[in-house]
Computed example of a mutant assay.
Amino acid sequence: MRNNREEQREGLKMRLIDAAEARIAAGGLNGLKARDVTADAGCALGALYTAFEDLDRLILHVNSRTLARLGAALQAAVVPGQGPKAVMAALAQGYVGFALANFRLWAALFTHRLPEGIEAPDWHRAEHAVLIAQIITPLGKLRPELAGDALRQRALTVFAAVHGVVMLALTARFVATPRDQVSGEVAALVTALTRGLAE
């Protein structure tokens, strides 16, 4: 059983994660300050460092939540019984929809960097598997000759293609697809990819 001190520490962690998540959702990672987060959480600045090593570690926990929500959104996008091409198309649209609806939290997954020389913990690295885990099964049906590392690498490539279009569009780069066309362009990309994969 947890003692009262452990429960208080866990409650503090949850308040800090909630506060940081709200700040990132509202304004992105730029300008996120420990002092603002702790004020929102109703605790002293020093309390953050009793719950987390630093602000970067707190951001990892926010990103962990976002990854879990993204995984759930991708799972919900797929209708049971669909063929592999339809599943790939549904996953891509689920990804676009999540990024559009949660842009700043989604972007934080890919723009947050730990200080040089500091590696992300294993538990957080493992959570990123959600980005390709659901691609592997339909992709394996489209390319049955691929297995193991080769299948995983191809799934990473397919993810990177879709992610690149979405990231460029939502960050309004000069070569980007217009934001209001990104869903249709991603659909066309996945159709082209799956047509080629099936040949």
Rank of each mutant, 00 (worst) to 15 (best):
E7P: 05
L12F: 09
L12S: 08
I17P: 00
A20V: 06
R23M: 12
R23P: 04
L29I: 13
G31N: 09
D36F: 06
V37E: 00
F52W: 00
I59Q: 01
H61V: 03
N63M: 03
R65V: 07
L67C: 00
R69C: 14
R69G: 14
L70P: 02
L74N: 03
L74V: 09
Q82N: 09
P84Q: 02
K85L: 09
A89P: 02
A90P: 02
A92Y: 00
Q93Y: 06
V96D: 08
L100H: 02
F103H: 14
L105H: 02
L105P: 04
L105C: 11
W106Y: 13
R113Y: 08
P115H: 06
P115G: 10
I118K: 08
E119S: 10
E119H: 08
A120H: 11
H128F: 11
A129S: 12
L131Q: 02
A133C: 12
I136P: 04
I136A: 08
P138D: 04
G140P: 12
G140R: 13
E145W: 12
A147L: 09
G148M: 05
D149H: 13
R152S: 13
L156V: 13
T157W: 10
T157E: 15
V158S: 01
F159S: 04
A160T: 09
A161D: 08
V162Q: 00
M167W: 12
T171V: 14
V175S: 13
A176N: 06
A176D: 07
D180V: 10
Q181E: 15
G184I: 06
E185M: 10
A192E: 09
